[in-house]
Design a protein around this nucleic acid. Structure first.
Lengths: 233, 233
DNA sequence: AAGTGGTCTAGACCACTCC
DNA sequence: GAGTGGTCTAGACCACTTA
């Protein structure tokens, strides 16, 4: 049990991870308190706390005052998912990213979008459709609604240089939002844009972005056939 | 600029978030160093550090020694994605979760799986197929390969009470893994199991789980039609 | 060389919660 | 009431990066 020398929080964390993976501490087990662990590892309680807090935040440990720290019963895997700008994602693959605005109009949004936007019925919102290409191959089709009440300057925005995606990020650093991932059947319209067969199964992302409690934009991204969103545990 | 009273790290973090959202600090801007912020907020540098480190970890700030802290130029949105047990996910909706083992056999895996498993060519691996239902409605179809070298006890495991999913989590708390999300076209076989039309677009998750550098299991989960994976930013 | 973040320490007090 | 985690503090030293 050579536990000496663990005087920094990362090595403490690694040791704790190891003990859980090796079943030295099993799911549901109470592990020693911070003071005792600090003694064992030869570091201060602060360092142990730093190590354990992150593990608890990641779902591997359950911590309660007085009750102590237990190995989580159902180790919920918490993956970190990076949602980069489309341009950054494409360029990270070494491809050239271009975008084209296919549609730009003010019109009442469909009911499903309106509800999310809390717009008046029949109120016109800015509707944009854009296609992003990687080395001139269709990559993702963007169908976006923007709330002009929240971002009035969007009316005169020029999306030829900065894509809607980038323009919005710069204008309105969003503080909240939710994301949903799903599969969708390729419609004939989308098929023409993405150069894929109608009826194909396509990966789609629906994202709603909020700022100061108001919905800024609601967007659906439909990716090219075969697209995979990867991440690590 | 009433910045007094921010003597705990959460309120410091909130104030920093606010300044970025309100464009007081713009993308690319250098923000004051920790010592100055500590003075301004009337707290110790440790507290400021705690607040800023988490923001940097979340991608909102870029920090470099000597160069200082800047608001990230491309604010990468980092969503936290919880990957619960299938049973937990279904029961969280208030439904009753059941599972049935449809296939259980030792056989050589297809090439695509073998490569990931680093198995010998034609080496037999354990192949499982299972269906999970929510209130007896098909929810997700699981197609899994398990490496018996890593988990020998899997050969005699009983999956009637504990699903393969749960059994593995208890036996081998994985420490690593990767996940990919994609859309897939429903094959006739899967259609029969999930009670959906062949050709439908289905959401699928491919997951590979590692323990101590070895692949434990490789699984594809194909969800029922209309399934959406949600998360928040 | 110097400025900045990264981390550790020892001690302290508080908040929660189980008994 | 008592044990545990949550957090703050002041100070210190180190590691890295830029100038």
């Amino acid at each position: 049990m050579k536990a000496e020398g663990r005087n920094n929080w990362k090595s403490v964390q690694e040791e704790v991870r190891h003990r859980i993976a090796a079943h030295i501490w099993r799911p549901g087990d109470l592990i020693p308190n911070e003071v005792d662990l600090a003694k064992e590892f030869g570091c201060s309680r602060t360092t142990v706390n730093r190590a354990l807090q992150e593990l608890a935040d990641g779902g591997l440990l359950d911590r309660k005052r007085k009750a102590g720290t237990r190995v989580a019963h159902n180790p919920v895997r918490r993956a970190k998912l990076d949602i980069p700008l489309i341009r950054a994602e494409i360029e990270a693959k070494g491809a050239v990213c271009r975008h084209a605005i296919l549609t730009r109009e003010m019109r009442p949004a469909p009911a499903s979008v309106q509800v999310g936007m809390r717009a008046e019925p029949n109120e016109a919102l800015l509707h944009l459709q854009a296609l992003y290409t990687a080395d001139d191959v269709p990559y993702v089709f963007e169908d976006r609604w923007i709330n002009p009440h929240v971002v009035p300057s969007v009316i005169d925005a020029d999306f030829s240089v900065l894509s809607p995606n980038e323009w919005l990020v710069r204008q309105v650093p969003a503080d909240e939002g939710d994301i949903a991932f799903c599969a969708t059947t390729c419609s004939p319209e989308v098929a023409a844009k993405l150069s894929c067969p109608p009826g194909a199964a396509l990966f789609a992302v629906d994202r709603t972005t909020m700022h100061a409690g108001q919905i800024v934009t609601s967007v659906r991204l439909v990716f090219h056939q075969g697209y995979r969103l990867r991440t690590q545990l």
